[in-house]
């Protein structure tokens, strides 16, 4: 078993700073979805983690805790994740530079 990052959508969608997407060393691992928070009634979208790409370095946790002060990301054992986004389920929106369609989260 190993640790992967997990983002709390409730906290993330309330702030939506997007810092973790800019500081993750792995490409297309922390993605951002406009729909993920809005479908729960929040103002913004939320970031989410493609767990099959996450190497578990926890840099996003440091950035979220110390730079953004949002405390929205925790490291969780892969088999304890309530929901996981896999790369093959991630789709991009028509306007690829403005939105990612959210159908990534699988139970």
């Amino acid at each position: 078993m190993y640790l992967v990052a997990d983002i709390n959508v409730e906290i993330c969608a309330a702030k939506s700073c997007k810092l973790c997407t800019q500081y993750c060393p792995e490409a297309n691992t922390i993605q951002y979805s406009e729909e993920l928070g809005k479908d729960k009634g929040f103002k913004y979208g939320s970031a989410y983690v493609a767990v099959d790409r996450c190497k578990g370095c926890a840099q996003c946790v440091w950035v979220c805790d110390n730079m953004a002060k949002n405390y929205a990301i925790k490291m969780i054992m892969i088999d304890q994740l309530p929901k996981a986004a896999l790369t093959e389920n991630i789709t991009y929106g028509e306007k690829s530079t403005t939105a990612v369609l959210a159908s990534p989260v699988v139970g």
Partner: peptide, 22 residues
């Protein structure tokens, strides 16, 4: 816009948390 488009960089074998990768 990071996290909203497909990046040119793909998965690679560099160490976890490497600042060079970032």
């Amino acid at each position: 816009q990071m996290g909203n488009f497909k990046e040119v960089l793909e998965e690679h074998p560099m160490c976890a948390g490497c600042a060079m990768t970032l």
